[in-house]
Design a binder for these strands. Structure first.
Length: 423
RNA sequence: GGAGAGAUGUCAGAGUGGUCGAAUGAGCCAGCUUGGAAAGCUGGUGUACUGGCAACGGUACCGAGGGUUCGAAUCCCUCUUUCUCCGCCA
């Protein structure tokens, strides 16, 4: 959520930046400023009345103490009208604020100046490519066939007990999952992240704090009886740990990480491109999250991007880094890098990580602030990234490391799997 | 799930319907003191919105939301949450 005062003071810049994100309702900016003006006028009125009422109430107290009851009664009567006015004005202010808020939360975050213009993922900018395309054996298989061939993942069993998109990992397939999680967590810890184990269900305030609500309500599973949402990413519980929190500047940057399953409804996405592990309703992910001073956040974004890239390098996967264009970025992000690995048998890029700087967009909703060493309070910047999401990594490992009769496990995982190949 | 007791500032912890943004203590910051430190002394020390060029003001906030009242931290209602006891349970 943007700050009203920022919008007011930088109206033209805001409008220009929103064009990069292809924002379709620029008139909202003017409406927001108008509503804020109205609110201020009303607030000034009501506060004047309240100040008078406070004085009057004090006078009544004094007069009663001095035994001047008739004078006290006179003042009492005179305040009754003012009270009515205050009440009405407060209702008006509340209404205005609500309309203002409703409009404000429709404004996406402003993209960073380096964000390319563009409407679709075709216009994302390839920042760098790394690694070589592996040479596969003649009869190379896509990962879903490999998963069946080596009895690693059972998609049909998942359909039976839950539904499509909830695979059952078996034997070495399950162990590979556990190994990847441990590898990712160990790497995150080595990079200075503090490990957390988190609730998988969150309340509405948390969903709002990180921007999933109201924007992506339909993407989250919802437990009606208890009013809780299943988390679509560990970003939600981790970042919301700092909702309504004031941190000290010398504590920054705060680096947290956590492994969680992630639940996404992915309503309306079916077909060949979501086959196998390409898109799931439940998947595992290690997330890294940082809270930083505004003047450090872009440097930190690069560090986080590097951290993710190093994971991919250690896994020996060919990847590329994209800077998302305005049209492909998320609502809340100011700058996002997507990492994609090459899925050699499917012959396509798979997104395995997304690293974003939200600047103050989340922290304004969260009321996550820090006190500078000079004693000023200001909103912190929040950043997060997947490091990494498992299913597509597994897909790429299975496909890229296949031989005609086995799958070789990347060396960095051997200490975690306890085996070097699957056959 | 049932019964009871709580929720006050950074923390601990007072608080009679008016003099309460809130005692007291600790912490923290600054100054004095000191060769330096500790102790001691003095002063300061919440957040949000808002008026004003500023100096300096105003309003709101005692878990959240309503209500009673001229006036609410204090009384009433609802909710959230913590603790204790009982029940159930991995």
């Amino acid at each position: 959520m943007l700050q009203v005062n920022y919008i007011r003071e930088n109206k033209n810049l805001v409008l220009e930046r929103l064009r990069v994100k292809n924002f379709s309702q620029p008139q909202l900016i003017e409406e927001i400023i108008d509503l804020d003006d109205q609110k201020k006028t009303l607030q000034l009125q009501v506060e004047t009345l309240q100040a008078n009422a406070n004085v009057a109430a004090k006078q009544v107290g004094d007069l009663i103490k001095k035994g001047k009851h008739s004078q006290a009664e006179a003042i009492k009567n005179s305040t009754i009208i003012a009270k009515e006015n205050i009440k009405n004005l407060l209702v008006k202010i509340n209404d205005t604020e609500q309309v203002l808020h409703q409009k404000l939360i429709l404004i996406p975050n402003l993209p960073h100046t380096s964000v390319p213009k563009g409407k679709t993922s075709d216009e994302n900018e390839v920042v760098l490519s790394y690694g070589y395309t592996p040479t596969l054996p003649e009869n190379a298989l896509p990962h879903w066939d490999l998963a069946a061939k080596y009895n690693l993942i059972d998609f049909e069993l998942g359909v039976k007990i839950t539904g499509a998109g909830f695979p059952v990992y078996k034997g070495k397939g399950a162990k590979l999952q556990r190994a990847l999680i441990n590898f990712f967590l160990a790497e995150a810890e080595a990079a200075g992240y503090h490990e957390l184990m988190l609730p998988l269900l969150v309340n509405e305030a948390s969903g709002f704090g990180t921007g999933q609500l109201p924007d992506k309500e339909g993407q989250m599973y919802f437990c009606n009886t208890d009013n809780l949402y299943l988390i679509p990413t560990a970003e939600v519980p981790i970042t919301n740990l700092y909702r309504d929190v004031m941190v000290k500047e010398n504590e920054l940057p705060i680096k947290n990480c956590g492994y969680t399953p992630c639940f996404r409804r992915e309503a309306g996405s079916y077909g060949a491109h979501v086959r196998g592990l390409n898109r799931l309703h439940q998947f595992d992910k290690v997330e890294i999250v940082q809270i930083a001073q505004p003047y450090h956040s872009y440097e930190i974004l690069e560090q986080m991007s590097l951290h993710v890239q190093q994971l991919l390098q250690k896994l020996g996967l060919q990847y590329r880094v994209l800077r998302l264009c305005g049209g492909d970025m998320s609502f809340a992000s100011a700058l996002t890098y997507d990492m994609e690995v090459w899925s050699a048998a499917q012959k396509r890029w798979l997104e395995v990580s997304s690293v974003s700087n939200f600047e103050t967009f989340q922290s304004n909703r969260l009321k996550l602030r820090y006190k500078t060493t000079e004693g000023k309070t200001q909103l912190a910047h929040t950043l997060n990234g997947s490091a990494l999401a498992l299913p597509r990594i597994v897909a790429a490992i299975l496909e890229n490391y296949q031989t005609s009769n086995s799958i070789q496990i990347p060396t960095c995982l051997h200490p975690y799997t306890g085996f070097a190949s699957i056959s």
